[in-house]
Write a protein that binds this DNA or RNA. Structure first.
Length: 269
DNA sequence: ACATCTACCTGGAGGC
DNA sequence: TGCCTCCAGGTAGATG
């Protein structure tokens, strides 16, 4: 489930293999992702140099002279490098073929992902224009203070990309546990010290996951179908009934806004 | 304006 | 073994 750390790991994994190369063509085997892939995408991208690969929230941005290819991995998407002649499997929907015969291959079984084109300034794209700030850039405690002046539960706040980007269900659960804050608490009740505490936890959780992902970068250029990141180990996520690592009480699972919340009732009052 | 709910999709797990 | 049901999740768009 790609959240910010997995997307950033993907970006770092692809970067040395693609920057400076030319796109020969884009092969779309199945255009039916979250939004249909533009049938004319080759008109924008073929024979164009890949100048850089950036990230905005959970979106990967492939920079071409005239615009950007925007890729979102949804919840089951992964990118890896393959040789263009390597047979594609069932869910390998898109290949971006490069002029050295390599391919950036998108695999996405559940097709919640997206491959889009945006002319000119990529931040003008409707999906990017309204995104909140990056959690790892700037003063996160101040950002949290500013966005927390509202009446939503803390977990919903962290998962709302229009308020802050990059944090999905897994890392929202983990960050709130690390900060010893209840996922059900109303955001507006946080004081500055608690915003600071939560900022430290979010940074710690995300940076630790990125470092863990970095140790697996070699897998981006392999013959297997594994994405370039591994399942991390978590303190609360997916650990219903198991011991809290701090107080050893049982971790509880609750539905919150149609999503599973994992938390320790003792540590996160 | 703001908060919450629904829909999209499919592999895997569990029950019978 | 096979069929059925449920669950996971990001986010736009609809609804309250």
């Amino acid at each position: 489930m790609p959240e910010l750390p997995e997307v950033e790991t993907t970006r770092r994994g692809l970067q040395p293999h693609i920057e400076g190369l030319c796109i020969r063509e884009i092969i779309v085997r199945n255009a039916r992702l979250r939004w249909p892939i533009d049938a004319n995408i080759n008109q924008y991208c073929a024979n164009q140099p890949l100048q850089h690969i950036n990230r905005r929230g959970k979106y990967l941005l492939l920079g071409l002279p005239a615009g950007h290819i925007i890729i979102h991995l949804g919840m089951s998407g992964s990118l890896r490098m393959a040789h263009h002649s390597e047979p594609a499997s069932l869910h390998d929907h898109v290949d971006i073929i490069l002029d050295n015969d390599a391919a950036i291959r998108l695999r996405d079984p559940r097709r919640f992902g997206a491959v889009l084109w945006q002319d000119g300034d990529v931040n003008q794209h409707p999906l990017l224009a309204k995104l909140g700030p990056e959690p790892l850039d700037g003063d996160l405690a101040t950002v949290l203070w500013q966005i927390s002046r509202c009446n939503v539960p803390l977990k919903n706040l962290l998962m709302d990309s229009h308020r802050i980007v990059g944090i999905g269900n897994i890392y929202a659960n983990e960050a709130l546990f690390d900060a010893r804050l209840s996922p059900f608490r109303k955001a507006s009740t946080l004081d500055l010290a608690e915003c600071n505490q939560l900022a430290n936890s979010i940074r710690h959780i995300l940076e630790t996951a990125i470092i863990a992902g970095g140790s697996t970068l070699r897998d981006f250029v392999g013959v297997n179908n594994q994405p370039g990141y591994f399942q991390q180990t978590y303190a609360v996520y997916g650990r219903t009934g198991l011991d809290c690592p701090i107080c050893h009480q049982a971790i509880v699972k609750t539905k919150q806004a149609q999503r599973s919340t994992f938390w320790c009732p003792e540590c996160q009052q």
